[in-house]
Design a protein around this nucleic acid. Structure first.
Lengths: 338, 338
DNA sequence: ATTTGGCACTCCGTCGGGGAGAGTGCCAAG
DNA sequence: CTTGGCACTCTCCCCGACGGAGTGCCAAAT
């Protein structure tokens, strides 16, 4: 186990390196932080920290920089979550409250998060899987053509065109609409299949086939759209990445364009609370020099989706974590209200 | 007026510079293109071209590179639009045909365009202004709360929550729904206001106020959502920009994040056909070293939105223009079919 | 009048050497 | 275990030299 002072040295190294982006040496450390020891002592501690793999030196006779393992320890043991200032909180609330619909909420959130953290922000749309049904609507567009509209409690709307095997009368359609809604409104998406499977039996003749088609499309929509959407923002913050970034920034931009990668990234964070994945802890290779801070958010107690930021491993973890957590809370409030 | 050969020299300079990204000298030119003259002659021509402002040299005794004016002449007079190869066309068609809904079409288009041109692609959603109404739906969510759903002929769906001054009966609601649809279905969005303004008169008492509220929201949606949406893709291609790109790439990324800027950019291209804006021709400062190639697309004869690419002024104009035009055509076809 | 070869000149990019500076590791003393 | 001292190692930066590519101009040729 590392002694108290050595942990303190590690904390100081992380803080300085995050601030200056330059390897930090023993002398500078003793000056900037009032460790009550001499540079020589710090050097000894650094040697130990390096042996243990928490810090490294880019070249012999350069200062030290934290390794992924060092950041991990810093995040787990040494750093708290920095609460936002009260003006910041106000700004968040004001900014989010102007939103008119779900798209707008998500759009504002991603911009807000990018601005607050000065990093790349990622916001996942509220998942259908954990949502409930607010309403199902069936519209007759043409004799044998229906449109199915699905509205969720988070305000998301999905629509599908259905070509039916046979035309369906207005009465039967109204009947189906009513039966459908009475069964599924307020229910979770995952429960819908079992709730509607016997519906065709209430209809006769051609209508029975039509109802089956409609239900098939509905279930298909539930499955397909479980494939989640997300949006990103603040990519221009990547240019703040470092001096060497031609090589660094490219794979990151590529990874960010692959929604699949991002979804997996967010999905891997099992912890319902905040998750921080540092450098190589991210499975994706292009993100091996970035850290991802993510957290679930939702309209109620339960998380319906995730949001987070992607930035260089050398980031201000306490501040970033504070911003991410605060934004998630406020978005949750907004969603609950609407 | 420039002589035939001088134009030929300019063309050669543009082509070489686009290929090599390096200033091109007189000797290399005569070797690579079989101009039937000596380097010395080419040097004289270059001096003239430089006087006229078509080319410039980064430093004395370096080769020449085209200026914005040079590219402009190249695009207007010297270069055609390079048609895509037949496998490319096939690939486009296959890739776009798998799309299931409008979001998917637009998403696939932007990825396709980015991949094809290896540049940043921008695709605007079909505009509501020039669309027609396919259906309007009103749902009762709660006693005094309605949801308005608007479906366009391009498959776009907009929804709005409405808090009404008083509850409305199911019958009155059905009546309103029927009247509304009979008036506006198939009509252009711009014509809707005049077509519905007298609708409240058909209702009595509380309902009249409710109807007015609904119509107000409908008209508001038409106006607000005329503010167009767009998506971009292929930002990682920016890393191909040049060697000096830390400074170049930043303002471009920032501009791309400002949807307003992009919309204005596309909007400024008045020509219904293809428009190429080169370097400083773009009003936005951050885009002064980029060119924008854009074209309208639509489901019928008329353009309903635009798409295009943003890349360095040093780009392969014929190839890019060919790809942009081809993609626009195929997307138009897909939209017309659905 | 235009084209061509020749030639001197300019300027960039690169490479190697020489400090200066920062930081380390180690050692011996406190 | 801590501290001061000291020699050592690297990096970074500046400088000057050099090679090369390309130009501009001129005088001769077509």
């Amino acid at each position: 186990m590392l002694s108290e002072r050595r942990l303190e040295v590690l904390r100081a190294i992380v803080q300085d390196y995050v601030g200056t982006e330059e390897p930090v040496g023993s002398k500078a450390l003793t000056e900037r932080h009032n460790l009550q020891v001499s540079p020589a002592t710090v050097r000894n501690d650094m040697a130990v920290l390096e042996d243990e793999g928490y810090i490294a030196q880019p070249h012999t006779s350069a200062g030290r920089i934290p390794t992924d393992k060092g950041y991990r320890l810093f995040v787990d043991k040494l750093a708290g979550v920095k609460p936002l200032s009260s003006p910041e909180r106000k700004a968040i609330q004001n900014f989010l409250e102007g939103a008119v619909d779900l798209d707008d909420v998500v759009g504002r959130t991603v911009r807000l998060l990018a601005q607050l953290t000065r990093q790349v922000a990622v916001v996942q749309y509220p998942s259908l899987t954990r949502s409930t049904v607010r309403h199902v609507e069936l519209l007759s567009l043409a004799p044998a053509r229906l449109m199915l509209v699905l509205i969720t409690d988070t305000g998301r709307v999905e629509q599908r065109l259905i070509d039916t095997p046979a035309p369906m009368g207005e009465d039967a359609l109204a009947d189906l609409r009513a039966r459908l809604n009475s069964r599924v409104v307020g229910q979770r998406f995952t429960d819908v299949p079992s709730l509607v499977q016997d519906l065709p039996e209430a209809f006769d003749g051609d209508d029975r086939g039509t109802v089956s088609t409609v239900l098939a499309t509905l279930l298909e929509t539930l499955v397909e759209e479980t494939e989640e959407r997300l949006i990103i923002g603040g990519t221009s913050n990547l240019t703040r990445f470092g001096h060497d970034f031609p090589l660094t920034i490219r794979p990151v931009l590529e990874a960010l364009e692959e929604q699949v990668v991002l979804l997996k990234l967010l999905g891997e964070a099992k912890d319902p609370g905040m998750t921080v994945r540092i450098g190589h802890e991210n499975a994706h290779e292009g993100l091996s020099s970035t850290s991802v801070v993510s957290v679930g958010y939702g309209s109620g107690d339960e998380a319906v989706a995730k949001l987070g930021v992607v930035g260089p491993t050398r980031m201000d973890y306490p501040g970033t974590m504070g911003a991410v957590r605060a934004v998630a809370r406020y978005v949750g409030q907004i969603l609950a209200e609407s």
